[in-house]
Simulated assay, not measured.
Amino acid sequence: MVRGNTRQRIQDVALELFAEQGYEKTSLREIAERLDVTKAALYYHFKTKEDILIGIFQDLTRPIDELIAWAQEQPRTLETKQETLRRYQSALADAAPLFRFMQENQATVRELSIGLTFKERMVTLSGLIQEPDFAMADRVRCISALFTMHAGMFFMQTIEGDPEEKHEAVLEVALDLITQAHHA
Protein backbone atom coordinates (compact mmCIF):
# COMPACT_ATOMS: atom_id res chain seq x y z
CA MET A 1 0.00 0.00 0.00
CA VAL A 2 1.15 3.54 -0.77
CA ARG A 3 2.47 5.32 2.33
CA GLY A 4 0.16 8.30 1.89
CA ASN A 5 -2.92 6.06 1.84
CA THR A 6 -1.89 4.24 5.02
CA ARG A 7 -1.07 7.51 6.73
CA GLN A 8 -4.47 8.94 5.73
CA ARG A 9 -6.28 5.81 6.94
CA ILE A 10 -4.48 6.00 10.29
CA GLN A 11 -5.50 9.66 10.67
CA ASP A 12 -9.12 8.97 9.67
CA VAL A 13 -9.49 6.04 12.08
CA ALA A 14 -7.73 7.92 14.89
CA LEU A 15 -10.04 10.91 14.44
CA GLU A 16 -13.08 8.56 14.52
CA LEU A 17 -11.85 6.97 17.76
CA PHE A 18 -10.94 10.33 19.30
CA ALA A 19 -14.49 11.53 18.51
CA GLU A 20 -16.12 8.34 19.83
CA GLN A 21 -14.28 7.95 23.12
CA GLY A 22 -12.13 11.04 23.55
CA TYR A 23 -8.47 11.67 22.82
CA GLU A 24 -7.24 10.74 26.32
CA LYS A 25 -9.05 7.39 26.36
CA THR A 26 -7.85 6.28 22.94
CA SER A 27 -4.64 4.23 22.76
CA LEU A 28 -2.32 3.57 19.84
CA ARG A 29 -3.12 -0.14 20.33
CA GLU A 30 -6.84 0.57 19.74
CA ILE A 31 -6.06 2.57 16.62
CA ALA A 32 -3.89 -0.31 15.31
CA GLU A 33 -6.63 -2.86 16.14
CA ARG A 34 -9.34 -0.85 14.36
CA LEU A 35 -7.05 -0.63 11.31
CA ASP A 36 -6.14 -4.32 11.61
CA VAL A 37 -2.41 -3.52 11.53
CA THR A 38 0.38 -4.16 14.02
CA LYS A 39 1.48 -1.48 16.43
CA ALA A 40 4.87 -1.60 14.66
CA ALA A 41 3.18 -0.69 11.37
CA LEU A 42 1.50 2.25 13.11
CA TYR A 43 4.82 3.35 14.64
CA TYR A 44 6.36 3.43 11.17
CA HIS A 45 4.10 6.39 10.39
CA PHE A 46 3.47 7.95 13.81
CA LYS A 47 5.35 7.56 17.10
CA THR A 48 2.62 9.01 19.36
CA LYS A 49 -1.06 9.97 19.42
CA GLU A 50 0.06 13.58 19.45
CA ASP A 51 2.00 12.98 16.21
CA ILE A 52 -1.20 11.60 14.62
CA LEU A 53 -3.22 14.59 15.81
CA ILE A 54 -0.61 17.09 14.62
CA GLY A 55 -0.55 15.33 11.22
CA ILE A 56 -4.35 15.51 10.99
CA PHE A 57 -4.28 19.17 11.96
CA GLN A 58 -1.58 20.02 9.41
CA ASP A 59 -3.36 18.20 6.57
CA LEU A 60 -6.77 19.72 7.29
CA THR A 61 -5.49 23.24 7.93
CA ARG A 62 -3.19 23.39 4.90
CA PRO A 63 -6.04 24.85 2.77
CA ILE A 64 -6.51 27.60 5.39
CA ASP A 65 -2.78 28.36 5.26
CA GLU A 66 -2.95 28.46 1.45
CA LEU A 67 -5.95 30.80 1.69
CA ILE A 68 -4.04 33.14 4.02
CA ALA A 69 -1.05 33.17 1.64
CA TRP A 70 -3.37 33.89 -1.32
CA ALA A 71 -5.23 36.68 0.52
CA GLN A 72 -1.97 38.34 1.58
CA GLU A 73 -1.00 38.70 -2.09
CA GLN A 74 -4.31 40.24 -3.19
CA PRO A 75 -5.35 43.90 -3.23
CA ARG A 76 -7.19 44.85 -0.02
CA THR A 77 -10.55 45.34 -1.71
CA LEU A 78 -14.04 44.37 -0.64
CA GLU A 79 -14.10 41.82 -3.49
CA THR A 80 -10.92 40.15 -2.20
CA LYS A 81 -12.36 39.97 1.32
CA GLN A 82 -15.61 38.47 0.02
CA GLU A 83 -13.66 35.86 -1.95
CA THR A 84 -11.57 35.16 1.17
CA LEU A 85 -14.77 34.37 3.08
CA ARG A 86 -16.06 32.13 0.26
CA ARG A 87 -12.80 30.18 0.20
CA TYR A 88 -12.71 30.04 3.99
CA GLN A 89 -16.16 28.47 4.10
CA SER A 90 -14.99 25.76 1.71
CA ALA A 91 -11.85 25.09 3.80
CA LEU A 92 -13.97 24.90 6.96
CA ALA A 93 -16.31 22.37 5.39
CA ASP A 94 -13.35 20.14 4.46
CA ALA A 95 -11.94 20.40 7.99
CA ALA A 96 -15.28 19.76 9.75
CA PRO A 97 -14.16 16.49 11.45
CA LEU A 98 -11.17 18.29 12.98
CA PHE A 99 -13.28 21.18 14.25
CA ARG A 100 -15.73 18.73 15.85
CA PHE A 101 -12.76 17.09 17.58
CA MET A 102 -11.46 20.48 18.75
CA GLN A 103 -14.87 21.43 20.14
CA GLU A 104 -15.24 18.13 22.03
CA ASN A 105 -11.63 18.00 23.29
CA GLN A 106 -10.90 21.62 24.19
CA ALA A 107 -8.65 20.80 27.16
CA THR A 108 -6.48 18.52 25.01
CA VAL A 109 -6.28 21.07 22.22
CA ARG A 110 -5.15 23.74 24.69
CA GLU A 111 -2.35 21.46 25.94
CA LEU A 112 -1.08 20.57 22.48
CA SER A 113 0.85 22.84 20.16
CA ILE A 114 -2.04 22.91 17.67
CA GLY A 115 -4.27 25.19 19.78
CA LEU A 116 -2.02 28.21 19.54
CA THR A 117 -1.41 27.86 15.82
CA PHE A 118 -5.17 27.77 15.20
CA LYS A 119 -5.62 30.96 17.22
CA GLU A 120 -2.79 32.59 15.22
CA ARG A 121 -4.54 31.62 11.96
CA MET A 122 -7.77 33.26 13.15
CA VAL A 123 -5.96 36.45 14.15
CA THR A 124 -4.24 36.58 10.74
CA LEU A 125 -7.48 35.92 8.85
CA SER A 126 -9.38 38.55 10.82
CA GLY A 127 -6.64 41.05 9.99
CA LEU A 128 -7.00 40.26 6.29
CA ILE A 129 -10.72 40.99 6.17
CA GLN A 130 -10.71 44.28 8.10
CA GLU A 131 -8.80 47.55 7.98
CA PRO A 132 -6.96 49.21 10.87
CA ASP A 133 -8.78 52.50 10.29
CA PHE A 134 -12.25 50.92 10.49
CA ALA A 135 -14.51 52.13 13.28
CA MET A 136 -14.71 49.66 16.16
CA ALA A 137 -18.22 48.50 15.19
CA ASP A 138 -16.99 47.74 11.65
CA ARG A 139 -14.01 45.78 12.98
CA VAL A 140 -16.46 43.78 15.09
CA ARG A 141 -18.57 43.16 11.96
CA CYS A 142 -15.53 41.75 10.15
CA ILE A 143 -14.57 39.46 13.02
CA SER A 144 -18.23 38.46 13.40
CA ALA A 145 -18.22 37.37 9.74
CA LEU A 146 -15.59 34.74 10.61
CA PHE A 147 -17.48 33.63 13.71
CA THR A 148 -20.70 33.43 11.68
CA MET A 149 -18.96 30.84 9.53
CA HIS A 150 -17.78 28.90 12.59
CA ALA A 151 -21.25 29.03 14.11
CA GLY A 152 -22.62 27.85 10.79
CA MET A 153 -20.49 24.73 11.05
CA PHE A 154 -21.50 23.83 14.59
CA PHE A 155 -24.98 25.16 15.21
CA MET A 156 -26.65 24.95 11.82
CA GLN A 157 -26.54 21.14 12.14
CA THR A 158 -29.35 21.40 14.71
CA ILE A 159 -31.56 23.57 12.48
CA GLU A 160 -33.97 21.88 10.09
CA GLY A 161 -33.45 22.57 6.41
CA ASP A 162 -31.58 21.77 3.25
CA PRO A 163 -27.80 21.62 3.96
CA GLU A 164 -26.97 23.60 0.81
CA GLU A 165 -29.53 26.27 1.69
CA LYS A 166 -28.06 26.57 5.20
CA HIS A 167 -24.55 26.75 3.73
CA GLU A 168 -25.59 29.58 1.40
CA ALA A 169 -27.43 31.43 4.19
CA VAL A 170 -24.36 31.38 6.45
CA LEU A 171 -22.19 32.72 3.63
CA GLU A 172 -24.77 35.41 2.79
CA VAL A 173 -24.82 36.69 6.39
CA ALA A 174 -21.01 36.70 6.60
CA LEU A 175 -20.77 38.58 3.29
CA ASP A 176 -23.43 41.06 4.46
CA LEU A 177 -21.40 41.79 7.59
CA ILE A 178 -18.19 42.46 5.71
CA THR A 179 -19.97 44.52 3.04
CA GLN A 180 -21.67 46.61 5.73
CA ALA A 181 -18.29 47.22 7.41
CA HIS A 182 -16.86 48.51 4.12
CA HIS A 183 -19.74 50.85 3.40
CA ALA A 184 -20.07 52.36 6.85
Rank of each mutant, 00 (worst) to 15 (best):
Q89E: 11
A96C: 03
D94M: 04
A95T: 01
L85A: 10
L116G: 13
E104T: 14
L128D: 06
L85T: 09
T108W: 00
F134K: 05
R121T: 03
A137F: 05
M102L: 12
M122F: 08
L92P: 00
A137S: 11
G115Y: 09
A135W: 04
E131M: 05
N105Y: 05
S90G: 00
T84W: 07
E120C: 02
Q103L: 12
M102E: 07
E131A: 05
M122C: 09
F134R: 02
A95G: 05
P97Q: 01
L98M: 13
L98N: 02
A91P: 09
L116I: 08
M136D: 11
A96F: 06
T84E: 05
R86C: 06
D133N: 12
Q106K: 15
D138C: 07
A137Y: 07
A107E: 15
D94C: 03
T117R: 15
L92N: 02
P132I: 06
S126G: 10
N105D: 15
F134D: 08
A91I: 05
L128V: 08
A135D: 12
G115L: 10
T117K: 12
S113I: 11
A135P: 00
A91E: 04
Q82M: 14
V123C: 01
L128S: 06
E111Y: 06
L125M: 09
L98C: 06
S90L: 12
S113H: 08
Q130M: 10
I114N: 03
M122T: 06
Y88G: 00
L128Y: 06
G115H: 10
S113V: 14
A135C: 04
A135N: 01
F118T: 14
Q130P: 00
I114W: 02
A93V: 08
R110H: 14
M136V: 13
A95I: 04
L128M: 04
T124Q: 15
A93S: 09
P132C: 07
S90C: 02
E131C: 00
T117F: 02
N105G: 07
R87S: 12
E131N: 02
E83R: 07
L98V: 11
T124W: 09
Q130E: 12
A93C: 03
R121A: 06
E104V: 08
V109S: 03
F118I: 08
F99D: 00
I129A: 00
F99G: 00
R86M: 11
V123M: 09
L112K: 03
M102W: 08
L125D: 06
E111R: 13
F99Y: 13
R100K: 09
N105L: 06
I114L: 14
F101G: 01
L112T: 15
A137T: 10
L112G: 02
K119G: 14
E111Q: 15
L92D: 00
E120D: 14
N105K: 05
F118H: 13
F134H: 06
N105V: 01
L92I: 12
M122G: 07
A91S: 11
E131H: 10
K119R: 15
P97N: 01
F118E: 14
A135E: 14
R121K: 15
L98I: 11
K119S: 14
E131K: 13
G127K: 03
Q103M: 15
P97D: 03
F99P: 00
M136C: 04
K119N: 12
V123R: 13
